[in-house]
Amino acid sequence: MHLAVSLDIAAPSGQAVLDFGQISAFVRKAEAVGVDMVIISDSADEPSTSPFEATTLLAALATVTDRIGLVASASTLAHQPYNLARRFASLDIISHGRIGWNATMQQNPREAANFSRPEGFSDDNFRRRAEEFIGIAHGLWRGWDADALLFDKVGGRFHDPDRMHVLDHKGEFFAVRGPLNVARSPQDTPVLVMSGLNETDRDFASRVADVILIEEESAEAANAATADLRRRALAADRKPEGVKVLLTVAIESEPPIDRLRNLLGSSGCDGFNFVLPADVAALQNFTDRVLPELQPRGLASRTRQGTTLRAHLGLGTGGAK
């Protein structure tokens, strides 16, 4: 059973923003009780009330935590694939293998206007572009074999050319040569989390994602969505258990813990993704009243497998082919 917490650090207009001390204190408490990962939201679509850019915040959080996974939302509209793949690979090295990327398949048309595309993209073009972007990131993360970097001063060899792979991607939207100029990820590839899926996106997500966040109103709908994603993963020659499906639950007040436990047993999913607002009182309520209730009911555990986020989640190597 796996737990994630999605934290929206952008405060509503007129509300005080969270500072780093408040955010880091919350993340450390989540780590102590056994939450697997915290997902930091990010948006570049309008004047921001967020004090931090999400991936920059992850670098800081990596220095004050030891075990919890750190995931940042990053838009395929606001970045180029090479720079974003390089940033996540570097963060994974800093954190000793605890980093993930939450890639949403939902387009925010206002965001595109900040990046030289005031007209945005058609839904179909956005989807194809996002799929190409994610595929490039995975290809770049795999550009160095585990033993490619030799650092052989005596022999004058920095790397073994046979273990370095040039991507040389030329696609519909991007052209990227590669490889990355940072080392291979400590966990093979950073964990890919995908959200905002519609029916059209499910085949792609089942083929490439490590974690899929779903939003369903009932246990029956969650069960059907989870079973569907696992069937698609199997059709893509993946082990169904190699894709973790987490049910998103918005937290506005204290949730009924026993209902969550029953929901987990009947939804077929692998755990929950709790969505919290950027509000000090809400975070305090969650850490003081909700998190302590999760462990005795078997919904959280301080015992984790391995040291990387991929190991915590019981995942193998990255899913993209």
Rank of each mutant, 00 (worst) to 15 (best):
V17H: 10
Q22D: 02
Q15G: 08
V33G: 03
D19I: 14
V17G: 14
S41H: 14
M37T: 04
V33I: 09
E46R: 13
A32Y: 06
Q15M: 14
K29R: 13
K29M: 09
E46K: 12
A30L: 11
V27L: 07
V33W: 06
G21I: 06
I40S: 08
D42T: 05
S48Q: 04
L18Q: 12
I39L: 14
A25Q: 10
M37A: 15
L18M: 09
I23L: 11
E31Q: 03
A32K: 06
V33N: 08
V17P: 14
A30K: 01
I23T: 01
A32V: 05
V38D: 02
D42W: 14
A16I: 13
V17A: 14
A16N: 06
G21K: 10
A32E: 13
S48L: 07
G14T: 02
G21S: 12
V27E: 09
S24I: 08
Q22T: 14
V35D: 03
Q22H: 04
I39R: 09
S48F: 07
D36G: 04
F20W: 01
M37E: 07
P47L: 15
S48P: 07
D42S: 01
D42G: 01
S13D: 15
G34Y: 03
A25Y: 05
D19N: 11
L18N: 10
A44I: 07
M37D: 07
M37R: 00
D45F: 07
D19T: 14
A16D: 15
A32L: 09
D36Y: 02
V35T: 09
S48M: 01
A32H: 05
V17R: 13
D19R: 04
I23Q: 06
E31V: 07
P47N: 15
S43V: 04
D36V: 08
P47G: 15
V17C: 13
